[in-house]
Amino acid sequence: MELLVAIAIGVMTAAGIYLVLRQRTFPAILGVALLSYAVNVFLFTSGRLALDMPPVLVGDEYATGTYADPLPQALVLTAIVISFGMTAVVVLMALGAYLSSRTDRSDIGGEAESEARP
């Protein structure tokens, strides 16, 4: 099972990197979104995988082995909400740039100019 999760993280990261390296803003936003999924899942797995052991206390049982690790979950929970905030800011920046400059290219000058030529 660990292998499957690792593959999922890897594929999402790779796709995220590839999209971030595109020259238009929208794919870059999608790339950032994918990267945040990957990072969140990665952080989550640092508590190791556990099946059917949600960290909700039952009775007087407090032992570590009987519950999933709650700490990464708490960290990831806020990370998910914050990544929404980040995505929203990036979207607005992209939108603002597009509306103000009439182009959704992320690179003006520099590398893009040389590569944009056919």
């Binding site: 990261t13 790779a14 796709a15 995220g16 990197i17 590839y18």
Partner: peptide, 11 residues
């Protein structure tokens, strides 16, 4: 770059 980065994270 993407495959290298993704592969590293997966590993």
């Amino acid at each position: 770059l993407a495959v290298a980065g993704g592969g590293a994270v997966a590993a």
